[in-house]
Amino acid sequence: MQAQTEVNAPTPKMPQRKDKGFKAFLKKCKDQRALLIMTIPFVIWVFIFKYLPVWGWTMAFQDYKPARTFSEQEWVGFKHFLFLFESDRFLGVLRNTLAQSVINMVLGFVTAIGLAVLINELTNMKFKRVVQTISYLPHFLSWVVAAALVSSVLSIDGIINEILMGLNLVDRELLFLGVGEWFWGILGAAETWKNVGWNAIIYLAAISMIDQEQYEAAKIDGASRVQRIIHITIPGMKSVIIVLLIMNIGYILEAGFEAQYLLGNGQNVEYSENIDVFVIKYGISQFNFALATAAGMFKTVISFVFLVAANSLSKKMGQGGLY
């Protein structure tokens, strides 16, 4: 999803140091003061709200006490990080984070591509539009609403249990959210239900760029519907798929937290708790700011490394990078 934010800004006109250096630059600034007024407040804003919190990472190396000033804090080096990696709970959290995002990613890709291909094959335009509109619906619901819907569908008297009972597939109702091992699958299904229609948008756009003559030619050559999909539609989406796939590697530790937090409970905690939920529990509920910051910082740094790597990989493969 993040790949459409491609930034191929044309090379900006740098202040022309050749001419009169700093003076010319100042004159330019003066000429463009309206543009400066439009941006400077927001540059200050972005530094305060987005960059300043990074300074808070220092907490991860301290025994942070909210009452003390910065200079009074006690520095403890990597103590919190060592604690994290020696605790079984955090290792489980790490496993859950990786498993959840890999499952969500694979499911997300396959279902969105599949849906886009099938929507593209619909010949009745009105029906096509209705299907698309309906498929976007869950994306616009909050996770609170989505979690309410998911848990009511999965509840003891929910539709899934009724269907399973009706078909005699199970002897008694299943407590879906009460079985830890099922959580990753439920999460993946919920995530897919919520976002598949939305994620298909980009693939549909890619399909619409494919030259229609290719289909006509294939038809004359006697290619079947399925053959046309495999040999024309899917290759036509290839570059978009590759870009999105590579970029998603950068988000390998970002499995979100809303669904996990809202659908998680005491019975499935060993499978639902990921890094973000861990940070919320330690930081906000137990006020262990330092440890929570260390966990959050670990996640951000690893993600950033993955992202830089993915981006250079993407550039090497000639797909253009994000920045």
């Binding site: 993040q2 800004a9 400066l36 987005k50 808070g56 959050g296 951000t300 920045y323």
Partner: peptide
Amino acid sequence: KFVFKKSVTIIFIMTMYFNGGLIP
């Protein structure tokens, strides 16, 4: 023509890829 076109763009884009995190 904006003199800070590129730098302002980058300053904002960067915020997509990292953040201070919940507690900070």
